[in-house]
Structures are given as structure tokens and as C-alpha cells.
Simulated assay, not measured.
Amino acid sequence: MRFTRTFAALTLGLASSVAMAADADQAIRKTLQAIQPDLPVEAIAESPMAGVYQVQLQGGRQLYASEDGQFLLQGYLFQVKDGKAVNLTEEAESLGVAKTIAAIPASEMVIFAGKESKTHISVFTDTDCGYCQKLHSEVPELNRLGVEVRYLAFPRQGLGSAAAKELANVWCAKDKQKAMDLAKTRQPVADAQCDSPVAKQYALGQMIGVTGTPAIVLANGKIIPGYQPAAQLAKIALESK
């Protein structure tokens, strides 16, 4: 009898918890819908901090909200473990970004791989970008150090820019690697037509927080904004695989 009563109490407690979570989900979604109807909410769940819910957006970015949806917070949530502050927000966002990037087919990237790749980086690039060109000149060294370079398109001046057209020519070329080499050394790339992924990748970059190029995404989803010398970048990439 005691076991039956205990089981019933646990069942009621679980049902109550599920109902509360569902109410919180609806309340938070209602608030977000009122603020920004097109906000790409992927999931809402309780955060490690009591009374605070974590809102995961498509692409990995995180928001936080109260259970009733009346309070919203955008920023970092830290948890102190063994005397050290762990950035839970950054960890969650990196996981989301890694998942998003991993879903992109290799055929939609321009990939430079060495003989022995130990890890990879995904680089949002613009052909009309000095530091992107400098990074590209060091791709052979990155490959030698075991880092595969996967390019994604991000025309900084928008989809109507000359760089966006050049990126489309690169992605539509029969030999994408050769076309990328030409573009990064300021040589003309032949016009080409295809259903290029430039617009889709540009939108993806904006969704995960890319604002400039090169934007380097490590295998674990962490984003490094800006150029890094090959030796330093390879060390970071290999440590994060």
C-alpha cells in the first residue's frame, strides 16, 4: 500500500511538472511572438538556474525568460563549478552552431583538404576582403598542419554587391577550388550560372551571429571572428576537435 501511494504521488508530481513546463512554454512563446513574430524559436526548456527558462533559437543563439514570459534576458549565464565560472550560454550556443554547420552538405561548400585532415574549420568568406585573402594564402599551411578548410559564402555588402556575384561565380564554377584561388588573388572569375547557395549561406551566417569576414567556425561550433595566423589557428582548431 505504501509503495502504491508513493508511486501515485510521484506520478502526480511528474504530471504537475510537465503541465507547468507546458504552461511556461506557451507563455514564453506568446511573449516572443508579440515582440517578434518571425523569431526562429527551436526549443524552450528549463535552464540549470531555478525559475529561468532557456530559449534556443535556430542556429544556436540563446535567450532566457521567466516562467510567466514577462521577463526576458539576453546575455551569458555562468555556473560556478569547483571555483571556476563555466559559461553555459557559450557552451549551448556552440553546440547549436556545430549542429547547424554539420547539416550543410559538402557539395555546397568549397573545400580544401590536405592528405591527412585531423580536424576542420568552416570559414564564412568574402572574396573582396583583405584578411580573407590573407587567410586563403595560408590554406596550404593549414592543410599541412592537419586542418581541412571548408568555405561558406558571406558577401559583407549584401546580396546585391559585386562580391556576391563573384561568390556565385565561384560556387557555380566547374572547378570551385581553382575559381576560389583566382578570386582570392584578385583575378577575374568567369561568369557561371547555377542554383548557388550564396543567399542561403549569407542568411545562415547572419542567423548564427556572423557580422564580418573571415568568420571561422571550429569543429565544436565556437566562432572565431577575424583572421588568425595559420600556426595559431591550427593549434586552436586541433585542440577543439
Rank of each mutant, 00 (worst) to 15 (best):
F3N: 15
T4Y: 12
T4E: 15
R5D: 10
R5S: 11
T6K: 09
T11H: 11
L12M: 15
A15P: 04
S17T: 08
I28P: 05
R29T: 12
R29L: 09
A34V: 10
L39T: 07
V41L: 13
E42W: 14
E42C: 07
S47F: 07
P48V: 05
M49Q: 09
G51W: 02
G51R: 04
L57M: 06
Q62E: 09
A65N: 02
S66W: 06
L72D: 08
L73D: 02
L73F: 07
Y76E: 06
Q79L: 07
V80S: 13
K81Y: 09
D82T: 04
G83T: 09
A85C: 06
V86E: 09
T89A: 03
V97M: 07
V97F: 03
K99T: 13
T100A: 12
T100M: 13
A103C: 05
I104L: 07
I104F: 11
P105K: 05
V110F: 00
I111V: 15
K118G: 02
I121H: 02
V123R: 01
V123S: 06
T125P: 00
D126G: 10
C129S: 08
G130V: 15
C132Y: 06
L135Y: 02
S137T: 15
P140H: 01
E141G: 07
L142V: 04
G146F: 11
V147R: 00
V149C: 03
R150H: 08
Q157L: 15
S161M: 13
S161Y: 13
A162P: 04
K165Y: 06
L167N: 07
A168Y: 03
K176M: 10
K176C: 11
K178H: 09
A179M: 11
A179I: 04
A179G: 10
M180Q: 09
K184E: 00
Q187W: 03
Q187M: 15
P188N: 08
A190Y: 01
A190W: 02
C194I: 10
D195A: 14
D195N: 11
Q201M: 10
A203P: 01
G209T: 01
V210M: 06
V210W: 01
T211V: 07
T211A: 08
T213F: 00
N220H: 06
N220Q: 03
K222E: 06
K222C: 14
Q228S: 11
Q228H: 10
P229Y: 15
L233T: 04
A237I: 05
A237C: 08
S240F: 08
K241C: 08
